[in-house]
Design a protein around this nucleic acid. Structure first.
Lengths: 238, 238
DNA sequence: TACCTACTGTGTAACCTATACACAATTATA
DNA sequence: TATAATTGTGTATAGGTTACACAGTAGGTA
């Protein structure tokens, strides 16, 4: 007796479709940063079972598209953005996770500059929520959100991906606020500056912040070309 | 127009089955440790396209089983082992990754004590291969193997999971050989001992190695109860 | 215009961890 | 009884992490 995979897909389909009763979807945790808070883009669930609850953005995967492509498609559809940071995190496959049937879902998270996001006008069910305010979501989406946040937290300790959440030019204070919002810790300002300058990622724009009611800070941008091999030398200071 | 997920599964099935043309499988990278080498359990592919090539152990997911359960089922079927370490790593969903049709596969890796594995007699196509000797595999399984090995490498730097690959009692030399085999580096013997004893994971069994042609080392076992919160304090010494 | 507020920008010392490294003790074997 | 191979042990150095204070600057306000 062989396993199911040892027969061909055509054989399986002709037998009894036993293995084609599972749908696969992608769910996207779309992170943004605004007013010193980490936020996530959610939509009102339209399933009766989860009436008035919020859920992540997702869709079923089409037979002719790659898994990653499905995720990019959802992002493009919901944010209008093309060139975004996207990372697969985990696949959730509990039998009963979707009330309407068997749906296995692969979770991705994405980092976008919230200012670039022009909400689709017809989609007034779409809103940015502070991550820290979210206690429940439809389906198993709270678990998916938590899993993606954990991945983001460990990822930024070694990879320079937070810049996807910021405008091109930013001050060191904004950058530190972002790290603090994601990691949920306070950091020492002087040590933060020291470490970042040691890493040599930032390019001084020779410009100052505008419209701040205090001494303005310098503006920098991320210089990806200085980043050796996609790996940071040391984790962030606490 | 809503997305596919906003209709019910029943609606979708009755429409045109567009979203039920994808099969989902699990693939297991089963790691073992023998003769100071990290090994992986492989099976001869029986697909014509990959004749005489080796492949990972996997199977299609059944509609009524959780994703994790499918992986445990494959492990139990191939190794006879029940209580094994298993971790989901990544889901591979390229459209053309399987020649027989659209199959999305979720990869897991597993750590077993190779001595416990009694190969199923009828399955003489099943063999342990040194990870370092593997250059090609059927399907995209080489990429899956590499991905799982990378995950294992980063995981052991913070979590005490390597003990799943060893017999209950082991010497410090065996433990160090195992770390060196997984990470592909040589470590300093004295620093390795120092760090492990500082972490206080090991319980001295007051026994010595047998049948070694030199001064025997002490035997230890992993004391999980001393492990606080599943997280190691410091990475392994190099 | 003078002062107040709130932030920016900067350096050093103490501490902790990681690393490099050598020799005596023990067992099996010839 | 000598040899081979490995175990078991401590210290000094280097490097990185952390804690911490004060002068400078722009905007706001009286």
């Amino acid at each position: 007796m062989g396993t199911a995979l040892q027969r061909t897909i055509q054989q399986l389909r002709s037998e009894d479709s036993e293995f084609f009763q599972i749908a696969i979807s992608v769910d996207c945790v779309i992170f943004g940063f605004d007013k010193n808070e980490l936020k996530v883009l959610l939509i009102k669930s339209d399933l009766e079972e989860f009436k008035d609850q919020w859920s992540l953005l997702g869709d079923l995967v089409r037979p002719d598209e790659n898994l990653d492509s499905a995720s990019y498609r959802v992002l493009k559809h919901r944010t209008g953005l093309d060139d975004v940071y996207l990372e697969q995190v985990y696949t959730f496959g509990e039998v009963s996770r979707h009330p309407a049937g068997r749906v296995i879902s692969t979770a991705y998270y994405s980092l976008i500059n919230i200012k670039d996001h022009q909400p689709v006008l017809s989609d007034n069910e779409l809103h940015w929520h502070p991550v820290n305010d979210i206690t429940t979501l439809a389906f198993d989406h709270k678990i998916i959100l938590d899993t993606c946040l954990q991945r983001l937290q460990s990822k930024i300790e070694e990879h320079p991906i937070v810049f996807n959440l910021l405008p091109e030019k930013f001050s060191l204070r904004e950058l530190q606020n972002l790290y603090e919002a994601i990691l949920g810790v306070k950091m020492d300002r002087r040590n933060f500056r020291k470490k970042f300058f040691l890493m040599n990622w930032l390019e001084d724009m020779n410009e100052l912040e505008q419209d701040v009611p205090h001494r303005p800070g310098k503006l920098y941008r991320f210089n990806a070309s200085r980043f050796p091999n996609g790996k940071m030398k040391t984790p962030m200071p606490v």
